[in-house]
Write a protein that binds this DNA or RNA. Structure first.
Length: 969
RNA sequence: GGGCGGUUAGCUCAGUUGGUAGAGCAUCUCGUUUACACCGAGAAUGUCGGGAGUUCGAGCCUCUCACCGCCCA
C-alpha cells in the first residue's frame, strides 16, 4: 500500500467541530444509556443555567468537567445520563423581558397586566431561551439534549418550546409546597426581610451582598422629657473621672438619621453606669413638628456596645435587623416608614394622628395594636421623598435646631491664613457595611412585610447527617466545614417573591384572610365552600424550584422504571458560590420530599478568574468569552485547559497563553497521526499487542496500562488535572518525543517483519491515545478516529460510544529497563554535545568503554536509533577511553566522544567537576543518614535499603566520573 | 467580629497517607534532521512566607507570627 496523504496538513476545528457534533446527534450518542454494557448507572444533573444566560468561562469550566466524567463513564460502559435543562431565573428573566418591552416601546409590565406579561415571557423564552444550550453544544457537552428540562415546565401558559420533553416541573413544585405546608414546614409570617426597592420584592439573605462603603455617623441629642437633667460621668480604664457634666439629653450615634422618625426606644447596655440614672425615663425624638414630638423610653438590652459611639442606640425595629431583635425582646412597636420603592410613606394616618397614637403607646397609656401599619410617622413635608433625600432634610432640621452634637474645628482662611475655631456638627466619616441586591445593585432596605418561609431548622438535620456520616462527600474538604457552619446556624428561608415570573404560591385567602393551601383553586374551594377566594399574588424563590432539580428533572412524583434508575444521581459539579443557594437546599429538599440524598459527591470549584486572579467583569474589561476562544483555538484546546486547571480546591486563573499551548497539543496529536499515516501505519485486523517482539514496541505498549491507570485514578478521585497531565505527558513526552523518533529508523528502513510490527503497533497505540484523550478532547479525537478508520478493519462505532481501554497484561519491565537506558544514553550524549558546543548538525563518533555483554547487545539492537537521535557516525567498542574525548558515565559503561582538537579540555573538566560536585553532595547527604544509628534503628527497612542502594550507585558513578576526569590529564 | 483557605522556580500552579522538591509557560543557547517552528535539542532557576516544636527524618504534622484572599455578620 502506498503512502497517500489523506489528512489535511492543518487541523481546522472550525470546520470539524460542527460536523462532528451533528454526527453525534444523528447517532443519538448522548442518549441516556448509550454504549451501556453494565448495570451501574452514572448520572450527573447539570447545574441548570439561567434561561437568560450566555455561556461564560465559569460554565465552560464547569461543564467541561462534567462532560469529561460523562464521556469517561459512557466509554466504560456505565448506563450514563447527563441531564440538561435550564432555570427560569425569576428576577433575571423578568428584568430581561421588561427591558425588551421598553426597547420595543410596548406597554410596561404593569400596564399590560400579569397574564399578558407572562405570555410575553414565554414568547421571549421560546425565542432566545436556547442560546446557552447551543453554546454548550459548541463546547461539546454530551448531555442527553432530548430530555432538556425547564424549571417552569408545565406552568400556566407554557407552550413547551425548547423543553418539549421536560417533565412537568410546575406540578412537582406545587406538590412539594403543598406537602411541606401540610407538614408544617412552610409558614407565612410578618418579619423583617431584605427588600429590594428596585425590583420591589423580598429577597433571601443569600441574595444580599454586603459591601463596605464610605458612610457617615451623625451624633444627635435626644432631650429628656420634661427638661429633666442628670449627671453624666465618664471614667477611664482605672475608674478615674475624665468628664462630669449635667445633661438634659442622651447622645445617640446613627448612620441612618431618616429612620429616627420610626424610633421606638433608646437602648443602653444594662452595665452602662453612665446612663443608669435615666433608664426607664422618656426622651424626645428631635425630629418632626415641634409640637408633636414623640417621646420614647430609654431601655436596657444586651445589644448596645458601651464602647461604641455614645453607648446608646436608637431602636428602629422596622428598619434594622439588630434593632428588630431588640424591639421584639422588649415589646417595642415596629413603625414602618418606607414604601416598596424605598420612599418615605404617603399612606396611613396623618402625622399628627400617628404621632399622638405612638406617644400614647410609649407612655403606656395605650396598648400597641398588633398591627401598627396604619401609623405613619413620616411628617407631611417628608412624605414621598426618597430615603436619601429625607435623610438630608432630617439632618439639616436637627442641626438648625441645635440638637446636633457639636465639636470644635480649626479653619484656616485661605487668603489671610488666619485660623479660627468654629463649632460644627459632629459627623464621623467611616466605612460602613451596606447591603446591596446581587441582581439589582441597589441598597437593600430591611422591610417589615408578610412573606412565606421554609422552616429550615426542621429539615436541616438529614442534610447535616448525610455529610457527617459520609454518605455525601464534599470536595474540597474545606467545603464540608463551611457547609456545617452554615447549616448549624441556619435561618428561616424566605421563599416568596413579589414577582410575576415564577411558580405562583398555591395559597388562597378568603375575605377574612384565612389561608387555604392546595394544588388548585378547585381543591382550595373545596376546603372553603361558599367563600370567595383570592390567590396569593407572590411567586416562589427561583431556588425553591431549583432545589428540586434532581427529582424534578426525572419526573417526580411519577417514577418510571427508567427515571428511578438514574436517581439518586452521582456527582454534582458546581461553583462553591452556590453551596448554600443550591447544594445545601437540594440536599435538604430531596430528603424532605423523597427521603434520599440527591448525590454522593459534591465537587465545588472556585470562580474562574483572569490570569492575574481578578474577577472577570465588563468594567475591568478582562472578560474571556469562551465562544471567542472556541472560534480561535477550538473547543478541545479550551476543554483541555479547563481540565488541566482543575486541581481540587485550586484557584482558577485562565490565560489565553495557556489555551494556546494546549491548542498546540491538539496540533501535535494531529501531526503525529499524519506522520503515522505517511508511514503506512494502519490498523491491522486481529493485531494482538501481546505478541510483539521488538523492545521498542513492547515498551510503548507496556507504558499504556500505566497511563490508563493514572487517568483512571485521577478521574475516579476527581483530580482532573492529574489525568490531563498524565495524558499530555504520555502523548507528547513519550509517544511523540521518543517512540516515534525511535521508530523512524525502522519505519523508514527496509521492509520486513520489524517494519510491519512497528507499523501495527504505532497504529494501535494511536487508537488507544484517541480513546484516552476523547473525554478531554472529543472533537479532534473523533475526527481522527474517523480518518484512521478509513484504512484497516472497519470501525464498529464512533469513538464517543467506543470502549475505554483495558490493557492489563501489556506491562513489560525488561523492555522498560532497556528503553529507559536508551533514552538516558541519547539524552546524555545530547547533553554533553550541547555543553561541549558541538554544532548541532555535526555527526561525531562514539566509543563505548567497559560495557557489559547485556549493554553491548542493547547497543547493537538500537544502533540506528542512537546514530540518528544522538547524531553519531561510527559506533565502536574500545578497551580504553581515547584521548581528547568528552565522556559520559552511564551505568557500568563510559561513552566517549572523541572530539580531537575541537575539545575544550578546560570546559570538559569543568563539566565533569560540576557533576562530581553534585554527586558528592548527594553522597554526603546519604552518608549522614546511614551513619545515624537512630535512623538505622527506627526508619523502616525499606527506606534503609533504598538509601543503601542509592549510596552504592552514586559511589560507583562518582568513581567513574573521577576516572574520566583523570583521563583528561 | 466569626468562619474557611492561601503563602513552593520570573509567572501560574502540582506535590493523596512524613523518606531523592516537580510541571506548564516565560527566559537563555543551539537547530529547518520531509509529522509538527502551533517544532526539535539543551541550559539556568528554589534557605517550599518567618520562627519554634514533634520526629531518625518535615514542603507535608503541631504551635505561633506576618501578609494575602474568600464567605458570613
Amino acid at each position: 500500500m502506498s503512502a497517500s496523504i489523506m489528512l489535511e496538513k492543518k487541523y481546522n476545528p472550525n470546520d470539524v467541530e460542527p460536523r462532528i457534533h451533528q454526527k453525534w446527534m444523528d447517532e443519538n450518542a448522548f442518549r441516556a444509556g448509550a454504549n451501556a454494557s453494565r448495570k451501574e448507572t452514572f448520572t450527573i444533573m447539570i447545574p441548570p443555567p439561567n434561561v437568560t444566560g450566555a455561556l461564560h468561562v465559569g460554565h465552560a469550566f464547569n461543564n467541561t468537567l462534567q462532560d469529561v466524567l460523562i464521556r469517561w463513564h459512557r466509554m466504560r460502559g456505565f448506563d450514563t445520563l447527563w441531564q440538561p435543562g435550564q432555570d427560569h431565573a425569576g428576577i433575571a428573566t423578568q428584568l430581561q423581558v421588561e427591558k425588551m418591552l421598553k426597547q420595543n416601546q410596548l406597554p410596561s409590565r404593569r400596564d399590560m397586566g400579569r397574564e399578558k406579561f407572562l405570555e410575553k415571557v414565554w414568547e421571549w423564552k421560546g425565542k432566545y431561551g436556547d442560546t446557552i444550550v447551543n453554546q454548550l453544544k459548541r463546547l461539546g457537552a454530551s448531555c442527553d439534549w432530548s430530555r432538556n428540562a425547564f424549571t417552569m415546565a408545565g406552568a400556566p401558559g407554557d407552550p413547551g418550546t425548547g423543553h418539549e420533553n421536560s417533565p412537568n416541573f410546575h406540578d412537582a413544585v406545587i406538590k412539594v409546597f403543598v406537602d411541606m405546608y401540610n407538614k408544617g414546614l412552610i409558614y407565612r409570617g410578618k418579619r423583617l426581610v431584605n427588600w429590594d426597592p428596585h425590583f420591589e420584592t423580598a429577597i433571601s439573605d443569600l441574595e444580599v451582598e454586603n459591601i463596605e462603603v464610605d458612610g457617615h455617623m451623625w451624633h444627635f441629642k435626644y432631650p429628656l422629657a420634661g427638661g429633666e437633667t442628670y449627671t453624666y460621668v465618664e471614667r477611664d480604664e482605672d475608674g478615674n473621672i475624665v468628664l462630669e457634666e449635667e445633661r438634659d439629653y442622651i447622645s445617640i450615634a446613627t448612620t441612618r438619621p431618616e429612620t429616627m422618625l420610626g424610633d421606638g426606644a433608646v437602648a443602653v447596655h444594662p452595665s452602662d453606669e453612665r446612663y443608669a440614672p435615666i433608664v426607664g425615663k422618656l426622651c424626645e425624638i428631635p425630629v418632626g413638628p415641634k409640637e408633636h414630638r414623640r417621646l420614647i423610653p430609654i431601655i436596657t438590652d444586651e445589644y448596645p456596645d458601651p464602647d461604641f459611639g455614645s453607648g446608646a442606640v436608637k431602636i428602629t425595629g422596622a428598619h434594622d435587623f439588630n434593632d428588630y431583635q431588640v424591639a421584639r425582646r422588649n415589646n417595642i412597636p415596629l413603625y414602618v416608614l418606607m414604601d416598596t420603592k424605598g420612599h418615605m410613606r404617603t399612606d396611613g394616618w396623618s402625622y399628627v394622628e400617628s404621632a399622638q397614637m405612638a406617644k400614647a403607646i410609649a407612655q403606656k397609656k395605650r396598648e400597641a395594636p398588633e398591627d401598627v401599619s396604619a401609623i405613619n410617622l413620616v411628617p407631611e413635608h417628608l412624605r414621598g421623598l426618597d430615603r436619601l433625600e429625607a435623610r438630608k432634610k432630617v439632618v439639616a432640621e436637627i442641626t438648625a435646631e441645635g440638637l446636633a452634637v457639636m465639636v470644635e474645628q480649626t479653619r484656616t482662611d485661605k487668603e489671610t491664613g488666619e485660623e479660627t475655631r468654629v463649632r460644627v456638627p459632629y459627623v464621623e466619616n467611616k466605612k460602613i457595611m451596606q447591603p446591596f441586591g446581587d441582581r439589582s445593585g441597589v441598597v437593600i432596605e430591611p422591610m417589615l412585610t408578610d412573606q412565606w418561609y421554609v422552616d429550615t431548622a426542621k429539615i436541616v438535620e438529614p442534610a447535616l447527617a448525610a455529610v457527617r456520616e459520609g454518605r455525601v462527600e464534599i470536595m474540597p474538604e474545606s467545603g464540608e466545614k463551611v457547609f456545617f457552619h452554615w447549616l448549624n446556624n441556619i435561618e428561616p428561608w424566605c421563599i416568596s417573591r413579589q414577582l410575576w415570573w415564577g411558580h405562583q404560591i398555591p395559597v388562597w385567602y378568603d375575605d377574612e384572610g384565612k389561608e387555604y393551601c392546595a394544588s388548585s383553586l378547585q381543591e382550595a374551594q373545596a376546603m372553603a365552600p361558599g367563600k370567595t377566594l383570592t390567590r396569593d399574588p407572590d411567586v416562589l424563590d427561583t431556588w425553591f424550584s431549583s432545589g428540586l432539580w434532581p427529582i424534578g428533572t426525572l419526573g417526580w412524583p411519577n417514577w418510571t422504571e427508567e427515571t428511578r434508575k438514574y436517581f439518586p444521581t452521582d456527582v454534582l459539579i458546581t461553583g462553591q458560590d452556590i453551596l448554600f443557594f443550591w447544594v445545601a437546599r437540594m440536599m435538604m429538599m430531596q430528603q424532605a420530599v423523597v427521603g434520599e440524598d440527591p448525590f454522593h459527591t459534591v465537587y465545588l470549584h472556585e470562580l474562574v478568574r483572569d490570569e492575574k486572579g481578578r474577577k472577570m467583569s465588563k468594567v475591568t474589561g478582562n472578560v474571556i468569552d469562551p465562544l471567542e476562544i472556541i472560534d480561535e483555538f477550538g473547543a478541545d484546546a479550551l476543554r483541555f485547559t479547563m481540565a488541566q486547571m482543575a486541581s481540587v480546591g485550586g484557584f482558577l486563573k485562565l490565560s489565553t497563553n495557556r489555551i494556546k499551548s494546549y491548542r498546540n497539543f491538539v496540533t501535535k496529536i494531529w501531526n503525529a497521526a499524519r506522520f503515522l499515516e505517511m508511514n503506512d501505519c494502519y490498523r491491522v485486523e486481529g493485531f494482538d499487542p501481546k505478541t510483539v517482539s521488538m523492545p521498542l514496541n513492547k515498551w510503548i505498549l507496556g507504558a499504556l496500562p500505566r497511563v490508563v491507570a493514572e487517568i483512571d485514578r485521577g478521574l475516579e478521585s476527581l483530580h482532573f488535572n492529574d489525568s490531563a497531565n498524565a495524558a499530555y505527558e504520555f502523548v507528547w513526552g513519550t509517544f511523540c518525543d521518543w517512540y516515534i523518533e525511535l521508530a523512524k529508523p525502522t519505519l523508514q528502513g527496509e521492509d520486513g517483519p520489524q517494519k510491519d510490527e512497528t507499523r501495527a503497533t504505532a497504529a494501535y497505540v494511536l487508537d488507544q491515545i484517541l480513546l484516552l484523550l476523547h473525554p478531554f478532547m472529543p472533537f479532534v479525537t473523533e475526527e481522527l478516529w474517523a480518518e484512521t478508520g478509513k484504512t484497516g478493519p472497519e470501525r464498529t462505532a464512533m469513538l464517543v460510544v467506543s470502549d475505554w481501554p483495558d490493557l492489563a497484561g501489556l506491562e513489560s519491565p525488561e523492555a522498560e529497563d532497556e528503553l529507559n537506558w536508551l533514552v538516558d544514553l541519547i539524552s546524555g550524549i545530547r547533553s554533553v554535545r550541547a555543553e561541549m558546543n558541538v554544532p548541532a548538525g555535526a555527526r561525531i563518533p562514539l566509543v563505548v568503554v567497559g560495557a557489559s555483554p547485556e549493554t553491548q547487545t542493547r547497543i547493537s539492537t538500537h544502533t540506528d536509533a542512537i546514530r540518528r537521535l544522538a547524531r553519531i557516525t561510527d559506533l565502536e567498542t574500545a578497551p580504553d577511553v581515547p584521548e581528547k574525548a568528552a565522556q559520559l558515565v552511564l551505568g557500568e559503561a563510559v561513552y566517549a566522544l572523541p572530539l580531537g582538537d575541537v575539545i575544550d579540555v578546560d570546559a570538559e573538566k569543568a563539566r565533569l567537576n560540576k557533576e562530581i560536585g553534585a554527586v558528592e553532595k548527594e553522597v554526603a547527604q546519604i552518608e549522614r543518614k546511614l551513619s545515624n544509628q537512630q535512623f538505622l534503628a527506627k526508619a523502616p527497612e525499606r527506606v534503609v535499603t533504598e538509601q543503601k542502594t542509592r549510596h552504592a550507585d552514586l559511589s560507583e558513578r562518582h568513581e567513574k566520573l573521577k576516572k574520566a576526569l583523570a583521563c583528561l590529564g
